[in-house]
Design a protein around this nucleic acid. Structure first.
Lengths: 225, 225
DNA sequence: CGTCAATATGAATGGTTAGTCATATGGCGA
DNA sequence: TCGCCATATGACTAACCATTCATATTGACG
């Protein structure tokens, strides 16, 4: 199927140019958002002419999508082995949390794209706030997490939590921490913070068993007044 | 200071028109994002002429900002009494979680704005991903949450968690759940899901005390291979 | 009514930018 | 060395859209 035998001179050059464009575009999109970057800017940043970009990508939107997809695939390939290994569900979750540090640190520019993704050319109210493959990848990740949680519950490792609650919660909480750290200059505390998330998720915030039901009731009573 | 005595006919009309424009703009911005909505569209949606909008707002950006600010203030005013009451820190957190349902449900369109906020005319890498007052409000909310957590830890109600980790984590997790529910048609499960978050945060996912440290070590060993 | 001030109107303006295309370039085989 | 083809170029076009402003409408008040 795939021709492995022909990375001719021309072809390799072309591929290099392509990736230079992608790099430049990624930097700019990540920094300023889709609508605030013109093809001119991208061209200048990549040291090509405007028209050249259109030899590689049909439209600005296509370029954007391809970048998103690339990043998404990359992230997924890093996370997948962790969540699908043969280990204990508890270790999978812990491993996922710890891996997030590296993944998000290494792709921090790329990930910013996802933060800024909401603005994209997609005006729709898609399930996630991403577009195209990126949305699928997000869904896949969520699905994997849910499965791990479900398995953990089945085996009695976790309390009978709802995977559809915990999976997005973990994902969102992690993102919040990692991104806020990525934006500050001093990301020194990142490791500790992620460890904090880990503990939070595994053990909760309470010191001892506390009568949750009573509190909830009190709160809703107060609400009605 | 504030003249309470003069909502004359003219003035009241003007105010009504203004809020009709705000409503229309909010609907559109929430649905399609700042850049994908033209002043024309807003004018049509609000049943005014383009120029009329400029009698109320200096620019598109001003309009956007004012909407954001309005929503932010509204949300803050709902949350503040819960977090600053005289109750137990545990109840404050529980109350905050439960209140989020109502708040986000009632302003679901408005809140979508915050989701889409990243795109705004602000290209900067601001601390939060919001602009202007909205950013401040977000910070204020976070600060209040942190204080509650810190107080809870001090009183021994919570384990020695880091407020700077837990506050954003709770916020992000809640948002993730509420928004995903808001986007699905069947939000029937929302109450249960939020209750799930509550339990998750208070008690964690583990059934029993489990040797977290060992797991962490195993995971990082594996990482190095 | 008639007048005036406040407000609404929407066609016109100017600036921006995605995307095109006729032309130039340069590597490569003959 | 020559000519060819893949690729690069960047001035140009067409569309879009925020904003303006000369004009029309409204409704309050004498």
């Amino acid at each position: 199927m795939a021709e492995k035998t022909k990375p001719s001179r021309r072809q390799r050059e072309r591929q290099r140019h392509r990736s230079e464009i992608v790099d430049a575009a990624m930097r700019l999109f990540a920094e300023k958002g889709f609508h605030n970057v013109s093809m001119q800017e991208i061209a200048v940043e990549a040291e090509f002419a405007t028209g050249t970009i259109y030899n590689f990508f049909d439209s600005k939107e296509t370029l954007y999508r391809e970048i998103m997809d690339e990043v998404a695939d990359n992230v997924l390939s890093l996370v997948k082995p962790i969540l699908e290994g043969e280990t204990d569900e508890r270790e999978k979750i812990a491993g996922f949390i710890r891996a997030s540090i590296r993944i998000f640190q290494e792709n921090s520019a790329a990930i910013r794209l996802f933060l800024r993704a909401n603005q994209g050319p997609l005006a729709h109210v898609s399930t996630a706030h991403f577009s195209g493959t990126a949305a699928k990848v997000h869904d896949i990740l969520q699905a994997m997490l849910k499965q791990v949680f479900a398995a953990g519950v089945r085996k009695g490792l976790f309390r009978p939590i709802d995977p559809c609650v915990v999976a997005p919660a973990l994902d969102a909480a992690l993102r919040a921490i990692v991104f806020s750290a990525a934006e500050d200059v001093q990301d020194s505390a990142l490791e500790e913070k992620v460890a904090g998330i880990e503990e939070l998720f595994f053990r909760g915030i309470l010191h001892d068993a506390w009568n949750l039901a009573a509190c909830v009731k009190a709160a809703s009573d107060r609400e009605e007044s």
